[in-house]
Structures are given as C-alpha cells and as structure tokens.
Amino acid sequence: MKHSLIAYLILTLFFFGCKEEVLPKPKAMLRLDYPKATYKEVNEDCDYAFEINELSTVKENKDCSLVLDYPMMKGSIFLTYKKVDGNIRELLIDAQKLTYEHVVKADGIAPKEYINTDAKVYGMFYEVSGNAASQSQFYVTDSTDHFVTGSLYFYAKPNFDSILPAAAYLQNDIRRIMETLRWKN
C-alpha cells in the first residue's frame, strides 16, 4: 500500500507537472498614432495671426496670450504676446533664459534659427530632449513691434520616452505656427 501511494503521487506529479514551457513575452513598445494634421487660421483680435491644428482648442487670455489645448494628447502650447517698446534685448534674454532653465533636467537643447524675411518673422525654435518640464520652446519677433514666445507642456510628470510621440507631433504644429505667423500691423 505504501508503494502504491508513492507511485500514485509520482504519477500525479508527472501528470500535473507536464505543462507547456512558460516563455517571457517579447518586449513591445506602445504605438501612438495621431491623425494627419489639418490646419485652420486663428485670427483673434490680436496683432498676429497663424494657423493651428484643428485638433486643438484656443483659449484666449489677456493681452493676446493664447493657450492651444490638445486634450487628446494631454498637452498645451502656451503663447505669450508682448509689444516691443525699445526692449527687444530684454525680451530676447528672457525668452532664452526661460528655455535654458530646463537644462537641469534636459539631456540636451537643440536650437534652430527661423528667418522669414518676406513676412518679417525672425525667431528661434528649441527642441528639448530628456525629462524636462517643457519639450519645446520658441520665440518669434519682427524686431521692432511684436514679440511672441511659446512653450509646450504636458499634463503629466515628464517621462521623455512616454511623451516622445506626442511631443514630436506637437513640435510639427509649433513649426507650422512659426511658418504661418504674420503680423497684422
């Protein structure tokens, strides 16, 4: 009886122990696809106009500062308008200082100059990589009357790998803003 009990236990272990080999799942990356951008002109009661992605909603603040909200991506582009009144140097220093405050958390900041002499729009686009609070900063000016700064922020703790697809998509929208911006006066 003792031998039959042992044989029964071995047979039971053998029967239940023979399962498929467990393999780890392969690594996968989250794929975020966003719709192709379509643009429309924003023509608020401000001294400047430009095109925005139809996915965004515009919220106007005081002094022609705007927030372009992208609820689908949980992010916003903040635009600030200032009149140039002999203070172009200070405005440029402030815009550059704001960008380089992110250097503490950023892995890198890549500046790209923008010049459109026909529209009198001159500026700089900064692509910020790493876990910085803002993934993009920019400014544009006509050097005599108008100055606009912009910043891209997400409603989440910065994790560059996670927000990279959305940041790249919105950086294209920022470039479109810079390319289509025109001064009204």
Rank of each mutant, 00 (worst) to 15 (best):
K25G: 04
V58I: 11
G150P: 03
V104H: 08
K105A: 13
A156W: 01
D45Q: 10
S151A: 07
L13M: 11
K157H: 06
K36A: 04
K105R: 12
I109D: 05
V103L: 06
Y139D: 06
N43T: 03
D107L: 09
A37C: 06
I174M: 09
S76V: 00
N53T: 04
I163Y: 11
K97G: 13
S129H: 12
Q137N: 12
P24V: 10
V121P: 00
D142P: 01
K40C: 07
C46F: 11
I10Y: 09
K62C: 08
V84D: 02
D94P: 01
A167E: 01
E44V: 08
I115D: 13
E20G: 07
A168E: 01
L164C: 08
A133R: 07
Y122D: 02
I93N: 15
T57I: 03
A106C: 10
E41C: 06
E21P: 05
W183V: 00
K62G: 14
D45F: 13
M1Q: 11
D107V: 15
K97R: 12
T38G: 13
T57P: 14
N172A: 08
D142M: 05
T144A: 03
V121T: 10
E51I: 02
P71S: 01
F125Q: 14
F160S: 13
H3R: 14
I52S: 11
Y34K: 13
Y81D: 03
F14I: 12
A49Y: 08
K157S: 14
T38V: 02
S136Y: 03
T141E: 00
I88V: 08
T141A: 06
I52E: 00
H3K: 13
N61S: 12
P35V: 01
E54W: 09
A7K: 12
Y126H: 12
T180R: 04
F15N: 15
R182F: 05
F15M: 15
V67H: 15
V67I: 11
F16R: 15
I109G: 11
P35T: 05
I52Q: 03
F125C: 10
K112T: 09
G130L: 04
F160V: 10
C18N: 13
D118L: 09
S56G: 07
L181P: 00
K112V: 08
E101M: 05
K2T: 12
V84L: 03
K157N: 13
F15D: 08
Q171Y: 05
I93R: 14
K97P: 00
C46L: 07
Y48N: 02
T12H: 05
I10W: 10
H146Q: 02
S136M: 04
T141R: 04
G86M: 04
S162D: 07
N43G: 11
T141H: 04
I109P: 04
F154R: 15
L55Y: 13
Q96A: 07
L92H: 10
K83Y: 12
P24I: 07
V67W: 10
D142V: 08
R89L: 04
Y48K: 09
I115K: 15
D69M: 12
P111Y: 08
H3Q: 08
